[in-house]
Amino acid sequence: MKSIKFLLAGTIFGIILSKSEAVSWFRIFEMFHFQSFHMYGIIGCAVVLGALATFIIKRMGAKDYTGEPITFIPKNKTYINGILGGTLFGFGWALAGACPGPMFVLLGQGFASILVVIGGAILGTFVFGMIKRYLPF
């Protein structure tokens, strides 16, 4: 029963991504043409408010529901992987029109062909794990 909160958070996130059309291939295409503020508004708004929330949580030393302090794990201070991996991610994001969250939302919306995209994403993750030590970071 402790898990139901994660299921509920995921369900609401799935509805937000669907109803804001962020799961749509068309919206991603439009975003990369800078022809609508819509996607920038969603991400920008989430980041600005997220930064404010993160700042307040740190400043207040806020605790989670178990009473443990909320901590933020810094990202690894490497950059070559960010730019190279990020660019590959961008290729895929624009081509398939979906990042990892939306892929699973679209599965729920009943698009059978998204299973090929999800399968590709799992395969890509697997191949990354296999060749990680040969890649620059």
Partner: peptide, 29 residues
Amino acid sequence: LLIGGFLVGFGARYAGGCTSGHAISGLSN
């Protein structure tokens, strides 16, 4: 579809996150 998905999966792990982990929670922090 397969290559699109592959690039998303490979790229996200190589970069250390995707839109939610990097663009939203990472930038927020």
